[in-house]
């Protein structure tokens, strides 16, 4: 017994080093990728923004079927038609993921009409872009329900079947703001932090489940309607991300079963700094980088 513990203790640093080397090698080399030919992909918030590009990318990479959920039928219809023209079977359903009953009902309809979902992409998100004191209570709750609880309901609806079949993937389009908050988006930061924890906990829980994986993508500010008007102080140093690139990297991560993806890679330093520096130092850095004022010009979607 003592020898076993001692063995584990001695092996531990080597495991750490090996994992680091493995991650480094993976970063630089091309890996074996999962074939999407048998996969049915469900994308929440699939009508526009990153969701739309994700749908196109999954279709391009050979997914068998793509299903779009969203709250605006017009956008869903447009995206659906566009994808159908490329030859991939595509369906859409109007569904507000913040509404639990609606999620479960639509999930049942989906199973009957289309079949089992094997890749679930939780992309639906809203942001109101106001400070706490200016925020309306119902708006705060709506953000929590769509961005966080919606993810609970969709996962509860589809994960059991994935586990039964030993085949599935849960994807979450999160944000770097879940790890590094900013003023002016307190509802969004709170909900994305919750969402991140959910995915981390789920990822740890599913490590022992064969065939089922998780991917969490944490992009920096992306050039979409959702954060329209948000202004970064050094746009050349930290340019807004291209939604096509985000979608591409997301699908790549799904196919290589990568657990966490931070975009761009340099955002890792932000996270490291946050856990290293005292609070007052971080505040100075935030001020300099313009984090305190970037939401002042926010317009978003109306």
């Amino acid at each position: 017994m003592e020898m076993k513990v001692l063995g584990c203790a001695l092996l531990f640093p080597f495991q750490i080093v090996f994992s680091i080397l493995k991650a480094t090698v993976r970063f630089f080399t091309r890996q074996k990728r999962r074939d999407l030919g048998t996969d049915v992909v469900l994308i929440t918030g699939g009508g526009r923004g990153i969701g739309r590009h994700l749908a196109k990318e999954f279709a391009k990479q050979g997914a068998r079927k793509v299903i779009l959920w969203g709250r605006t039928e017009k956008c869903l219809k447009e995206t659906c038609e566009e994808i159908s023209m490329t030859g991939t079977e595509c369906h859409y359903f109007v569904c507000d993921v913040g509404n639990r009953e609606e999620v479960y009902q639509q999930a049942k309809v989906l199973r009957e009409k289309v079949g089992d979902v094997t890749i679930l992409v939780n992309n639906a998100a809203v942001v109101h872009g106001k400070s706490l004191m200016e925020s309306d209570d119902d708006a705060l709750l709506k953000t929590q329900h769509i961005n966080t609880l919606g993810q609970f309901w969709t996962t509860k609806a589809f994960l059991p079947r994935m586990l039964e079949l030993c085949n599935g993937h849960v994807v979450c389009i999160n944000s770097i703001l879940s790890l590094s908050s900013i003023p002016g988006a307190i509802d969004y930061c709170t909900s994305k932090a919750s969402s991140y924890a959910f995915m981390e906990s789920l990822t740890l829980g599913l490590l022992d489940c064969p065939g089922v994986g998780c991917t969490t993508v944490l992009p920096f500010h992306t050039d979409t309607e959702m954060f329209q008007g948000m202004r970064v102080r050094f746009p050349k140093l930290f340019p807004p991300l291209n939604p096509e690139m985000v979608a591409e990297r997301t699908v790549d991560a799904v196919r290589t079963n990568t657990a966490f993806v931070v975009l761009p890679w340099t955002m890792h330093f932000l996270v490291i700094l946050k856990s290293l520096l005292p609070q007052s130092a971080l505040e100075e850095i935030h001020k300099f980088s313009g984090s305190y004022t970037c939401m002042n010009t926010f317009k978003g979607r109306t």
Partner: peptide, 19 residues
């Protein structure tokens, strides 16, 4: 975990707002 991460996210965001 989600609720506690959320509480911390809220706390930090509020900190920044007050700052």
């Amino acid at each position: 975990c989600a609720s506690k991460f959320g509480a911390i996210g809220f706390h930090e965001s509020l900190s920044h707002e007050i700052q």
